[in-house]
Design a protein around this nucleic acid. Structure first.
Lengths: 130, 130
DNA sequence: CAGCATCCGGTCTGATACTG
DNA sequence: CAGTATCAGACCGGATGCTG
């Protein structure tokens, strides 16, 4: 069988040209959302637009570097829109794009599962006696 | 505001004791599912039980090492059950636990989104002119 | 068959310092 | 305010060789 995962060249010189990742949409999307801050930012931006430092304060724990990188990445993937206001000092606003908004629903479903079952996971980890 | 994310010690000696990750159930679950192979394995095991080498062939592209590690991790988190048959040569079967089965629904929702919107993401990436 | 041990390059993330 | 640049440590994931 093999899932759609390897309806792809299948054997490459290494390191794999990243094309492999885009082969499976699900894998690609998970690698997009699976980093440390992305979901949190999407959730926040799902409520309203935020300015850079506003996000920095809201998320707290995130470094300036990771905030920039994560937002950039979301922008490149078309999930977030970035609007610069040429004021002084500069002001930049981030908001979810329509594509980003459409992601809120499935993400909410997953979030609900996480909240509802996290205790079970923790219990399982504990009973493995760490 | 700050989301539930840092209703946690908030400042630690480093490296952070992993407790921070478990603070937000959603973040924790995403870090659980967000690696390269987990979702693919869950999807496969959602269809029927598999033996180790059967999975190895099915997923292809995955190394033996990562297959072992990913399955181990899923087992520790209580999403997958591992049954050893003391035959010779040995035989091990992996199946989704009830908790793992319950994950199929939200994951399917996300997968559906991925399939439905992957083209838009690709287009967005392209128009950023790489 | 179903692993484990070792090595290693690449990536992720944070800390810190600097800038238009 | 909203970043960029640099450095460094931890982690991810693959390759290879060995074993009960």
């Amino acid at each position: 069988m093999s899932t759609t995962h390897t309806d792809v060249p299948a054997s490459l010189p290494h390191p794999v040209p990243a094309a492999e990742y885009q082969a499976c949409p699900v894998t690609d999307v998970m690698r997009l959302l699976g980093d440390k801050w992305t979901l949190l930012l999407i959730t926040l931006l799902g409520r309203r637009p935020y300015r850079f430092n506003e996000l920095h304060r809201a998320v707290d724990g995130i470094s300036q570097r990771m905030l920039t990188r994560t937002l950039r990445s979301l922008e490149v993937d078309g999930l977030v829109e970035r609007e610069v206001f040429p004021t002084v000092p500069p002001s930049v606003e981030y908001r979810l794009s329509p594509l980003g908004v459409s992601l809120l629903e499935p993400v909410s479903a997953l979030a609900a599962w996480a909240v509802g079952h996290h205790a079970e996971i923790t219990r399982a980890r504990g009973s493995t006696e760490n």
